[in-house]
Amino acid sequence: MTADHPVAVLGECVADAFVAPRTTPPSPAAESPAPLTLDVHPGGGPANTAVALARLGTPTRFLGRLSHDVFGRLFSDHLAGSGVDLSHAVHAAEPSTLAVADLADDGSADYSFHAQQTADWQWTDEELARAADAPTTCLHTGSLALVQQPGGAAVERLLARVGQRATVSLDPNVRPLLVDPAVYREALPRWCALADILRLSDDDLGHLRPGATPREAADAFHAEGTELVVVTLGGDGVMASLRGEKIQVAAPTTHVVDTVGAGDSFMAGFLHSLHAVGALGGRLEALTPEQVRDALAWGVRVAAAVVAVRGANPPWAADLDGER
C-alpha cells in the first residue's frame, strides 16, 4: 500500500442543532412561549474527522450513507467543499440523524438524539463491499456506526477484511444516551483484536474501564491485540502507548468556546501526521515513538483550533501555518 492512497473514514453524519441563546427573557404576559431557535451545523464524529483530514491536506474518502433530505444535502456540500472524496458514499432513502445540543457556560454540550431508523445505521454487507473496494492506507471508523444495528455488525465484518490490506483505526466515542455502555464493553475485546489504533477520551475510558488509569487501560487493550492506544485527556493533553511504551503530550493553552468535535479533530491531526510520514498501510511494525509523539502534537494542535470556535469547524492547513 502506497502513502499516496487516501485515508478512508467510515461512519455517520449528524445534524448538530445548537439551541440558540435567548436574547430576551420570556415575558409572563406572553400568550405562548417564544419559539426555540436552532442553529444547525453538519457534524457526526466520523464526518468531522473526514472534514478535518481533508482540510489538512490528507487525501480522504468518506464512506457514509447520505440521506436525500435537507440535512443530507448539507452534509454532502460540507464534505465535498472541504475536499473529501464522496465517490464511494451511498445515497440513502432514510432520513438523516439529528442531535440537539444545549451548551453549558463552560462549552460542554448536553445532547438529545433523534436517531431511530435513520440512514447512518442501515449498512449491508453488499453496500460496504462496494464502498470499501478502492485502495486505502487506513480505514478509520467508530462512534455509533459500530454499535447501532443492523449496520454495526456489517461494519465489524468489514474491518476484519480491510485489516488484511490497510491499517485499522477505531474510536468508540461512547454515547450513553443512545447506547448502553455495556454494549461497548462487550464488543471492545473484538474491536481491539481488529484495530491497529484505538483512540478513546477520558470520558470513554470511564464508561469502558471504570476505575482504570489510562496506563492500566492501555496495557489491557494491548493484551487484547491493539498496537497503539491513544487516550485524550481534555485540558491535560493526551497519552499514547505504543506496544507498552508510554508517551505524553500536553495540550496548548486555549480559550474554549465549546468542545464539539474536539476528539474527532484530534484524531484527524494524528492520522494526518502518520500518513505524511508513510506510517499507515500495515500493522504499524515500523512505527517509532518519535513519530507517535509528533502525531500527538499535531492532534492536540488541531483540537485546540476546533475548541476555540463554535461547533465542529476544523482548521485548514493554511490556518495552522499562519500560527507559526
Rank of each mutant, 00 (worst) to 15 (best):
V14G: 06
D16R: 12
F18M: 13
V19Y: 07
A20K: 15
A20W: 08
P21W: 07
S27K: 13
A29Q: 14
E31R: 15
P42Y: 10
T49C: 14
A50N: 02
A50K: 01
A52C: 07
G57W: 03
V70P: 00
F71P: 02
G72F: 03
F75P: 01
S76Q: 13
G81L: 09
V100A: 05
S108Q: 15
F113K: 08
A115L: 11
Q117C: 10
W121L: 14
L128I: 11
T141C: 15
G142E: 01
G142S: 07
S143C: 09
G152R: 12
V162Q: 06
S169G: 04
V179A: 05
A193I: 09
G206K: 02
R209I: 02
G211E: 00
A212K: 08
E216P: 00
L228H: 02
R243Q: 11
Q248I: 14
P252N: 09
H255E: 14
V256A: 05
V257R: 14
G261P: 02
D264L: 10
S273Y: 04
A276G: 11
G278M: 09
A279M: 09
A286K: 15
L287V: 12
T288M: 11
D294P: 03
R301E: 02
A305E: 11
P314N: 13
W316M: 13
W316H: 15
E323P: 00
